[in-house]
Design a protein around this nucleic acid. Sequence first.
DNA 1: GTCCGGATATTCT
DNA 2: GAATATCCGGACC
Length: 221
Amino acid sequence: MERFAVPAPTLARRMLGWRLVSEAGGGRTSGRVIETEAYLGPDDPASHAATRAGRTRRNASMFEGGGTAYLYFTYGMHWCFNVAAGAPGEPGAVLVRALEPLEGREVMVDRRGRSRDLVSGPARLCQAMGLDGTHDGHRLDGPPLWMEAGDAPDEGQVGVSGRVGIRRAERWPLRYFIEGHPDLSDGKAAPADPRTLPPELRWIHRPNRSVRRSASTTESA
DNA sequence: GTCCGGATATTCT
DNA sequence: GAATATCCGGACC
């Protein structure tokens, strides 16, 4: 679980290529992570951890330390899956926005009621993999939901943009994706503009840099 | 292909 | 009362 104990932007970049495996709801499904978004703590106005109240019942899992699942319900009907980042007590999370389907395609089609766009979007992938609020707070080191290392994309394949579906801090460079992948979500993202970051967050412009010093294997050169 | 409205719960103002 | 880390179906081009 130590691999999750890094800041959210670093984890979001690093998770590209990892596999998410679910045995939730019966039937094994899995997919390769191809699109993520980082959400920070109180300094990030778009984060659920930015509220004046700080820790609330909904966002508690964002404070539980790297590797904790954070699932929230939105728009009255959709679940979204995040992975908490960093150290316990320091809020931050990575929203998983899209996967490339690997295992359990038939189960996904059955749950989704259609055969395309199975896991291309944060709410779609929760539906396809049987994820909901019962998995909030689960530690991602075993059944029914966990992550495995996978093929890291080449540096040149990684795209960066603003985050999808938000108004505040919309040009912060916190969405990471495998460039040109056919299974990306179809949300519209503003182009990234690192100049809109407050000075203390400028390191986010290249989150992989800060990883490399301590990273072991999965980072490509 | 693009655009728009509706569904609907929780949180925050 | 308004906004929301969304998706879907139908209208229209």
